[in-house]
């Protein structure tokens, strides 16, 4: 069964990479979000899920039942989901700001911090 999940997660990573490499700023941001989800899934998968029993200590019991799921990956992923959402919001606002200030949504034409390779500002490739 884990095979199916492994395949699904791998596909999510591929889709995320493809989206993130797009020149469309919006697709790029969505791609980063998808990659974030994939990372969460990988962490969860690494915890070897399989049990249906949530990691809650039953009333009367002193410690967690052996059949319960591993709580650690859950704790890691839970905070990661919320952080990922905050960062997605941040990226969306940043993207909107860039679109407004540059007048386009081409991520390869964002030259505020660095000019293109053809710019004379960069050192010449060959000796003059």
């Amino acid at each position: 069964m884990s095979l199916i999940m492994m395949l699904a997660i791998s596909l999510v990573v591929s889709a995320g990479v493809m989206l993130a490499l797009s020149r469309d700023l919006f697709r790029l941001i969505v791609g980063l979000a998808v990659l974030g989800s994939a990372a969460n899934l990988i962490v969860f998968m690494a915890g070897r899920p399989g049990s249906l029993v949530p990691p809650l200590i039953e009333a009367g019991a002193g410690e967690l039942a052996a059949a319960a799921a591993d709580p650690l990956p859950q704790a890691l992923v839970l905070t990661a989901i919320v952080i990922g959402f905050a960062l997605l919001c941040f990226a969306l606002v940043l993207g909107a700001w860039l679109v407004r200030h540059n007048g386009h949504d081409d991520s390869d034409r964002l030259q505020a911090s660095e000019p293109l390779a053809s710019d004379p500002l960069k050192p010449p490739l060959m000796d003059e």
Binding site: V82, F85, A86, C89, F90, L92, V93
Partner: peptide
């Protein structure tokens, strides 16, 4: 969580 995410939601 309440403050930060509502901040985003309202702003957008």
């Amino acid at each position: 969580v309440w403050g930060a995410l509502t901040g985003y939601v309202y702003a957008l």
